[in-house]
Simulated assay, not measured.
Amino acid sequence: MNEQLQQTLTALGGGLTGVDASTAASNVGGWHKTLDGVPGAETLVSHLAKLQEALKSGDLAGAAALLPGLGSETEKLAAGAPEADKAGLHQLAAALKG
């Protein structure tokens, strides 16, 4: 599994509410950079930008409202991901959907 995905899953190990907003914003920014320009990830990249903005502004309710959509988009992206990352992406998608 790719290191960035592993770090994200580890950070979410205590649940979504266990991650502080600044750490989450940094992680989201990293994913935004990683996925920007990846074919099929345009909607996910757009959602990540909105999530990062919400986290940075302290709008935690707005950030939480974006998570199910991020989970759905992550699940879609998992279908075309390298085999080594598919299970982790499905796990991430499930965590984001709640």
Rank of each mutant, 00 (worst) to 15 (best):
E42D: 15
E83Q: 11
K56C: 02
G58Q: 00
H32Q: 11
M1Q: 03
A78E: 01
A95D: 07
L70G: 10
M1T: 15
A41M: 06
G98M: 07
A94G: 09
N27C: 14
P82S: 03
S72D: 14
A65R: 04
S46L: 03
A84C: 02
K50M: 15
G98N: 10
A81H: 04
L35T: 12
H90T: 12
L12Y: 10
E53V: 14
L5Y: 06
A78S: 09
D36Q: 13
Q7V: 14
G18V: 11
A49R: 11
K56A: 14
A81R: 01
P39Q: 01
G98L: 06
A93T: 11
L51W: 09
T10D: 13
D85M: 01
Q91L: 08
E83C: 08
N2W: 10
A94S: 09
D85F: 09
G69M: 03
L89C: 05
L16H: 03
A84D: 04
A84F: 06
L44T: 10
K76D: 03
G62K: 01
S72V: 13
T23G: 09
K76P: 04
L77N: 00
D59I: 11
L92T: 05
D20N: 15
G69C: 02
P68E: 00
L96P: 08
G71E: 02
V28K: 01
G58D: 01
T10W: 13
G37Q: 06
E42R: 01
V38C: 02
K97F: 08
Q91G: 07
E75Q: 09
G62I: 07
A41Q: 06
G62S: 04
D85E: 05
A24E: 04
V45L: 06
K97C: 04
G69K: 07
L70Y: 01
S46D: 12
A79W: 09
L12H: 09
A49K: 14
D36Y: 08
E3N: 14
S22Q: 12
A81N: 00
A95K: 14
G29W: 08
E53Q: 15
S72P: 08
L48D: 02
A63I: 12
G15K: 05
L92P: 13
A65V: 13
V45G: 07
T10F: 13
L66R: 07
V45Y: 02
M1F: 13
G80N: 03
A65E: 03
T10S: 11
G71D: 02
G71W: 03
L51S: 11
G98I: 11
Q52K: 14
A87Q: 11
G88Q: 03
P82W: 05
A94W: 01
T34G: 05
G40K: 00
H32N: 05
L9Y: 07
A79N: 09
G13D: 10
V28F: 07
D85C: 02
S26D: 15
